[in-house]
């Protein structure tokens, strides 16, 4: 994948977002009067983002238009990206299910799924690891850290 195309798209998005920050007064609500003002620093940052994004975007656009040869830094290797999407999907499902099914019920499945994704096929040690680790983390955090991970709430 050609990173230069991504640079142009990203720069455009960042410039538009920065222009909104520079012009939209509804992004800040309330607050006391101060010499500096609540939006002074965000707008300075937005102005700088426009400058740096434009620099990156224009450089990449020029190289694209000149059809210069793509160098190693400008090539995004997309091999294995399917695994990334699956992993993010597993994590989002984990986040959605844990409040209802609890940490102890959900985590073994998540650990087992990630291990499978990474090519693990040693079933017995993987199942043991997937069951023992959440139990240790759950009781360790509740007893030593006083952190109470979510529990089953379906009943």
């Amino acid at each position: 994948m050609d990173r230069r195309k991504l640079d142009v798209v990203l720069s455009t998005i960042l410039i538009i977002a920065s222009l909104i920050i520079l012009t939209d007064d509804t992004l800040v609500e309330g607050g006391a009067e101060s010499d500096l003002g609540s939006m002074f620093l965000p707008r300075i940052a937005a102005g700088l983002i426009i400058i740096f994004s434009a620099t990156i975007g224009i450089q990449s656009l020029r190289r694209l238009l000149k059809r210069t040869e793509i160098d190693s830094l400008e090539r995004i290797v997309t091999d294995g990206f399917s695994g990334i999407f699956i992993y993010i999907g597993i994590f989002i499902a984990y986040w959605l299910i844990v409040p209802h099914a609890g940490f102890l019920m959900t985590t073994p499945f998540v650990m087992f799924s990630v291990a499978l994704l990474l090519g693990g096929r040693n079933w017995v040690p993987l199942i043991a690891l997937s069951v023992v680790t959440p139990v240790l983390v759950f009781y360790g955090s509740s007893h030593f850290l006083r952190v109470f991970l979510p529990t089953w709430t379906l009943s």
């Binding site: 998540v110 990474l118 983390v137 991970l149």
Partner: peptide
């Protein structure tokens, strides 16, 4: 495949520990 499932769980528990709410996840 033994290490990174554990890292995933530690990351989840670590993020939850900060404020003990699911928004942090």
């Amino acid at each position: 495949y033994y290490i990174f499932p554990c890292v995933t769980v530690f990351a989840f528990a670590g993020a939850f520990t900060a404020g003990q709410n699911m928004d942090d996840i």
